[in-house]
Design a protein around this nucleic acid. Sequence first.
DNA 1: CGGGGGATTGCAACTCGTTGCATAGGTCGG
DNA 2: CCGACCTATGCAACGAGTTGCAATCCCCCG
Lengths: 176, 176
Amino acid sequence: MALEHALLVALREQPASGLELTRRFSRSIGYFWPATHQQIYRVLGRMESDGWVRATTVEQTGRPDKKVYEVSAAGERALAEWLATPTTPHPLRSELAVKMRGASFGDRAAVLEVVRADLAEHRARLAHYEQLTARDYPDPTTLSDLELDQYLVLRGGVLTEQTWVTWLTEYLEAHA
Amino acid sequence: MALEHALLVALREQPASGLELTRRFSRSIGYFWPATHQQIYRVLGRMESDGWVRATTVEQTGRPDKKVYEVSAAGERALAEWLATPTTPHPLRSELAVKMRGASFGDRAAVLEVVRADLAEHRARLAHYEQLTARDYPDPTTLSDLELDQYLVLRGGVLTEQTWVTWLTEYLEAHA
DNA sequence: CGGGGGATTGCAACTCGTTGCATAGGTCGG
DNA sequence: CCGACCTATGCAACGAGTTGCAATCCCCCG
């Protein structure tokens, strides 16, 4: 039950409309907490009726109006409270791991092909994260607290993808 | 939509009743695809009516009867087919990452405490996985295909937990 | 022999996330 | 000015996962 809080973080970084939020989210926090626009709209509506955010309709030239959300005082309190509560670490959930473990019960060559495709995907993500790092945080020693946190989370993405690449490579080599 | 298939893998390794399966699962495949007993029972029921598994009631001495499930020919086909279909890699989903990114909007010391607790948890899991590895796969060079797959998946657990430890340690050090 | 407690299976209600579609305003090319 | 297409918001239905509880059956202890 944390999409609410993820949106609060995003809106505290920068107020936004539903669609803007969806787009920004998918390129930042969404790397670690995916969400579709429908989900975001629904949760924004709930948060508004809970008084966690405030909406202002903004007219635009050449485009439909948009509703810009910003975090209210109650939302700030809810966020601060949530930030201080312990997390129960979710175990990872990997369909691919199940396939790797079950490879003996099907066509092993086909499973290896699936693994190779996943490996390519993870390599691509790794490259993407590294590019983001180079572009946005060329010098990690001179960051504000806010930027430092953003950098460190992105760093987690890099580490995670590196691990995937290592793991899948090991798997493929063991079955070479 | 893969719990079905995870259960098929588990049942092909060894037929079992719902409860046995729940327990075994939580110490093997469940590391990569968590599921509660209620979920497992429900899915087993669905798989039975779909003809993917066959159930036999087994009387026990000193205990209630149990229903032992084994995979049918149709289940084997369904599993083999699923194993050969490409996966869309789920992005990771980490509540902790959201908290780390949002630390500026609450009490940073409290967030660091939450991170430390998570780090301890991941260290413990890592130790657990390493212990399992040493106990069950002392010599990874002499494994059957089936065992090799199991070993390699467990190896993924080790790598993943190592990554968590690295990441969270970096985070804590950066905010020291 | 009666009650606590573990094993085994299961129901019901709820939340969360996904998928597909709907609506409405606006631009722009032909 | 009509139709294709983008922006922006949203509904409805479904499926998957979670939580809390219920019903048996059986042993063992007092």
